[in-house]
Design a protein around this nucleic acid. Sequence first.
DNA 1: GTCTATACTTCGATAGAC
DNA 2: GTCTATCGAAGTATAGAC
Lengths: 210, 210
Amino acid sequence: MPRPARVSADRILDAAALEFSERGFAGARVDRIARRARVNKAMLYYHFSSKQGLYRVLLRRTFTLAAERIRAIAASPASPADKIDKIIAGFAAFIRERDFFPAIMLREVAEGGSRLDRETLLTLVAVPAAVAQIVQEGVARGTFRPINPLFAHLTMIAPIVFYLAAGSFLGEVGALLTHLQPLAADDFVHHMQDVMRRALAHDASPRQTS
Amino acid sequence: MPRPARVSADRILDAAALEFSERGFAGARVDRIARRARVNKAMLYYHFSSKQGLYRVLLRRTFTLAAERIRAIAASPASPADKIDKIIAGFAAFIRERDFFPAIMLREVAEGGSRLDRETLLTLVAVPAAVAQIVQEGVARGTFRPINPLFAHLTMIAPIVFYLAAGSFLGEVGALLTHLQPLAADDFVHHMQDVMRRALAHDASPRQTS
DNA sequence: GTCTATACTTCGATAGAC
DNA sequence: GTCTATCGAAGTATAGAC
């Protein structure tokens, strides 16, 4: 029984994810991707139109999966507060299943998304849209204070991406700074859930003056 | 009176900041940097040892200035809460004086700081160290709740970098999502100050159960 | 300090056999 | 579907005159 036909294409995508996340699009080398996938360059070009094309397929696939997962949470029957909790945990979990994701996302943000085609871009916008909808629902119900939904989205997503992108590097920094045990990712997720609960709660923190 | 000698070197650094922020180290082109600085390539190599060398000088200069500004705030006589406020505002102001900064920082994080030399890395670590010290002081005084200082640092810095890196791109996303007026950077700074005040405040947000 | 011309290398992509 | 060999463009860096 022969191996399934798409095996090598999948291996190429996996290798590309690694290479692009480590070096960025411009720094990635097609030769290295091929070698890592244990195919030769011609094979790569047989499956994918170009370096750009390979990159686009990878991003589209990944961002679509991420958006789906977030949308599923947003569509579930739960309180806005619970949904925010779950989105934070779900997003972190999604990343930890694919550690190539945060570095690529960071670089895309750095580039203003200029390398994303329109379709992928629209898919990706579904994530902040879902978060915004939840926030607005919470505000409408009176369980959240009034807050700019896009601000809320950035506040919860950015630290997670940073934290998980930094990975071992952050561990070194942390070792220089704290005497705490190695920073566990789960702890950070809980921290961010806590932060967002407080950020969205109807006023509880006392103002000093007036 | 002849022009000062370092004029062209400074122009090269300015051009390099732009080019590196738009394209990353690997995507940056020495020819383009030279053209943007209105010098020729040979001139660039007369002032700087290599593309790498130019990049390092740029980063060292920028990160040193950033660390100095944060340290000055940390050393000032103010309450921990005020210092956090000022660091958020000061960091955002620093970035807005150099819009090349966030994209470069994002890419460095994506790469795990592998392109920074040891000296620059140590300089940069001074920033989270300063924040951590303030947080710990607040915790010791009992004005902040116990919190991992490195978590606190990430929570406040990452969204600012994201927000200011995304710039116009975020504007488009925002236009698709909200009917609010264009997101002003000042509003976002206030938002993050608010978030951190709440995140650090001694418990005010009510827990649902138990 | 400044410029032109060019050496040398790397890299994306393809041709063409099997 | 898979491989070897190679082309041609682009890119970093330098030589050497002024």
